[in-house]
Design a binder for these strands. Structure first.
Length: 516
RNA sequence: GCGGGAGUAGCUCAGUUGGUAGAGCAUUAGCCUUCCAAGCUAAGGGUCGCGGAUUCGAAUUCCGUCUCCCGCUCCA
């Protein structure tokens, strides 16, 4: 079956079985926003716990944090988001291509420079050695005219950008007869502002209100608390701060189900290290994070690194872990060596020292940072798309049979076990209820007595329950039950009193990480 | 945002030239069977995405709009 078809079925499955619903569905939905249903929220919580425990529980030099979504607006100036997330865009109606209006104008400005340089080159060739370049540049009428035009345009451009005058930007493009590099036409749409940050106001009266942004990433909450955590936690380098939280981006195009949403959740760990050691730590975390993903058992060939050739201005190394989604290899997690850029920026903008006193070196410095940043929702999509199987169970005698099964890693499964009386008579339901009452303190359990046993197994397969406990007539006699395993469909008879230990072991973090 | 496709029950979809809205699966109640779905009986569930126009009458025709999918574009 084509991958796209599988993806469609997966989306339907998520809806049908209470994993993911479109937001505000009864009001026609809200673009690129989704809600997690009764099983979705369990899976999502389990993913978050799996990550959190892998970071905070298993590393004595990593601690947690939960910073607020609202932050001082200057933080986003310091981080560069105010500038970088603010693009004036324009479309060419003929080629259907979209451009940044400011880039188009800057490229046009560069042409003036080229023209002047060509002019100078020509003169150089003509006059030979006695050519006085500075004099020529400052007196040649053609150059002066070009330069004047260029300066005028530049001034006009800067004014338009400063005043955020979108109509003026378009007018500049029209006046200068700037054409689309693809179609060569000047059939432009209006310039529109795409601000990737959501803004709101804090303060309830209009005159006291301050414009603030919903954070577009959680990382800055860690950086601005760096010293708080380091000092109160008596942390010594190298150490990390982990955080799980929502972030918001007003994406121009949000697509592919929950892969790119406007409201999403990140799991980030910023690891602070001595300057000069950052690339070694970068390699360390690259490997460690890849192993963490592969421990889920979805197949090593479904993962790969994508090293960035073009680095963001703050980074000196960056790599993504990509997973093979039904729509291709896509980023799940980013590992970035962010240098001391963020802390230095906050030091400059806040005027507060963001330095660590190193007792070994007996000196203060701004630490370097390795970031591991993973999208919870992408991780959710990874887990559920890797777990979704349509199995043909047609028997040897040719009787057609099939099932849809979510082979979720037990540690992540929303429901850990279902307790099923083989029949709903002769006290088997009573016995079953007793087992549920005993195990529900430790595991998310379900009880089901409706329909045939085979049908109930199928229902649990569809939501990914790894273990079904079946109570039969032998249970009444010797207090044993059968455990039916979701993936193999094999059964095993065990004593009721041992159930808790057996299942606790199978759904544990320890068991999952054994696969490392 | 542009181009293309789509929107009818929880899911997948049918619905002819405009004439009272359907199926399968799922769900609920009951019966039968009792270790791997689709047996029997009955029931519930739909403003046909939304708004407007044409018409005696619109799921169906037209216009607008919203949402989703694919491609382009963008992506710290």
């Amino acid at each position: 079956m084509a991958q796209e078809d599988i993806f469609k079925k997966l989306v339907s499955h998520c809806k049908e079985y209470g994993y993911v619903f479109p937001s505000s569905e009864i009001y026609d939905g809200l673009g690129a926003v989704y809600d997690y249903g009764q099983y979705g929220v369990e899976l999502k919580n389990n993913i978050k716990k799996y990550w959190w425990d892998s970071m905070v529980l298993l590393h004595d030099n990593i601690v947690g944090l939960d910073s607020a979504i609202f932050m001082h607006p200057t933080i986003w100036k310091a981080s560069g988001h105010v500038d970088a997330f603010n693009d004036p865009l324009i479309d060419n109606k003929d080629s259907k291509k979209r451009y940044r209006a400011d880039v188009l104008i800057e490229e046009h400005l560069a042409k003036f420079e080229e023209k002047i340089e060509k002019e100078v080159e020509k003169a150089k060739n003509r006059f030979g050695e006695k050519f006085d370049e500075p004099l020529y540049r400052s007196t040649n009428p053609r150059i002066l005219e070009t330069k004047q035009k260029s300066d005028q345009l530049h001034e006009r451009f800067v004014n338009a950008i400063t005043n955020n005058d979108l109509a003026e930007l378009k007018q500049i493009i029209i006046d200068n007869e700037i054409v689309c590099p693809v179609s060569g036409t000047r059939n432009w749409t209006d310039v529109r502002q795409f601000n990737l940050m959501f803004a709101t106001e804090i303060g309830s009266t209009s005159d006291s209100a301050m414009k603030i942004f919903l954070r577009p990433e959680t990382a800055q909450g860690i950086f601005v608390n760096f010293l708080n955590v380091q000092k109160t936690g008596r942390m010594r380098l190298p150490f990390g701060i982990a955080q799980i939280g929502k972030a918001f981006r007003n994406e121009i195009v949000a697509r592919q189900f929950i892969f790119r949403m406007r409201e999403f959740e990140q799991m980030e760990m910023q690891f602070f290290v001595q300057p000069g050691t950052e690339l070694a730590w970068f390699e360390h975390w690259k490997e460690a994070r890849m192993k963490w993903h592969q421990a889920l058992g979805f197949g090593e060939k479904n993962y790969r690194f994508h090293d960035h050739d073009k680095l963001a201005h703050y980074a000196n190394a960056a790599s993504d872990i990509e997973f093979k989604f039904p729509f291709g290899f896509k980023e799940v997690e980013g590992i970035h060596s962010r240098t001391d850029f963020d802390l230095k920026q906050h030091q400059e903008f806040s005027g507060k020292k963001m330095q660590y006193f190193d007792p070994e070196k007996n000196e203060s410095y701004v630490p370097y940072v390795i970031e591991t940043s993973i999208g919870v929702d992408r991780m959710f999509l990874q887990v559920i798309s890797a777990s979704y199987y349509e199995e043909d169970l047609t028997k040897e005698d040719g009787v057609a049979d099939s099932r849809v099964v979510l082979r979720l890693p037990p540690v992540l499964a929303p429901v850990k076990l279902a307790v099923l009386p083989l029949v709903k008579k002769d006290d088997l339901p009573v016995l079953s209820r007793k087992i549920v009452d005993e195990l529900k303190f430790d595991f998310n359990c379900q009880y089901d007595e409706k329909d045939s046993i085979g049908k109930r197994y199928r229902r649990q397969d569809a939501i990914g329950t790894p273990f079904c406990i079946t109570i039969d007539y032998q249970t009444v006699e010797d207090k044993t039950v059968t455990i039916r395993y979701r993936d193999s469909m094999q059964q095993e008879r065990v004593a009721i009193e041992k159930l808790r230990d057996i299942i606790a072991d199978k759904v544990s973090l320890r068991e999952q990480l054994k696969k490392l």
